[in-house]
């Protein structure tokens, strides 16, 4: 990987470099705020784009730094803080949302990748007065303790039942060509992308079983 040279050194890198690099830090911050005119690309400064997407049925239009993840767009720009940030690296599932009907980790996706997409978050599944059946079942079965992983768990749980209905196999499916069934084993395997620090797993499985049987 080529060395970027001192002019492109990141702000964090410069600050970490200590007092001796203060003048350089100043130069680098200025540089970050003023992209060079006419530059096509390069680490020259933030690049912004206008993004349109539909979130929970409402059309949204935002100007964003290209680096903004879908997760940060939802939480910081659209103030939909139901979706949580756990690891920010695809390892916990707290940020799970539905995009065009499929669950994804919103932390490992850029907003610019979602131009024109339909996003559904926990706020779009149900409301306190009109809960989604899965939200209802989580309440009934105590499918959480601290609740931090819960929005991601519920979005995933709703998607899992849909994935089983549409015949998508899993690691524990014996017969790949037969019908898929929402057994406890299937649901546990399919929910493995959602970690719960409080260990509410068995209650989550019970909540899902109740909705699957309904």
């Amino acid at each position: 990987m080529p060395d970027d040279g001192y002019l492109n050194v990141s702000r964090r890198g410069v600050l970490a470099g200590g007092v001796g690099s203060a003048a350089l830090a100043q130069a680098s911050i200025l540089r970050a705020q003023q992209p060079m005119p006419g530059s096509q690309s390069g680490n020259e400064g933030p690049s912004t784009m206008r993004i349109r997407m539909t979130v929970n049925g409402t059309p949204q239009e935002v100007d964003l730094d290209t680096r903004t993840t879908l997760l940060d767009t939802l939480r910081e720009h659209l103030k939909l803080t139901g979706t949580k940030k756990g690891c920010d690296h695809g390892q916990c599932g707290a940020c799970t949302v539905m995009v065009n009907g499929q669950r994804i980790n919103s932390c490992l996706s850029l907003a610019v990748q979602h131009e024109g997409d339909e996003v559904t978050t926990i706020e779009g599944l149900g409301t306190p007065d009109d809960l989604h059946p899965m939200q209802d079942a989580f309440v009934e079965h105590d499918g959480y303790q601290c609740g931090y992983c819960t929005p991601g768990q519920i979005c995933s749980a709703v998607a899992v039942l849909e994935e089983i209905r549409s015949g998508i196999p899993s690691h524990v499916t014996d017969d790949l060509t037969g019908p898929m069934r929402p057994t406890e084993m299937e649901m546990r395997e399919r929910m493995s992308g959602n970690i719960c620090r409080c260990g509410a797993y068995s209650n989550i499985a019970e909540a899902m079983a109740q909705v699957a049987e309904a």
Binding site: G90, G93, T96, Q102, R103, I104, N105, L108, S109, S156, A159, V160, E163, R190, M191, S192, G193, N194
Partner: peptide, 9 residues
């Protein structure tokens, strides 16, 4: 491999 969310993407 990975998780349901990751495999969708």
């Amino acid at each position: 491999g990975a998780s349901g969310q990751l495999r969708n993407k």
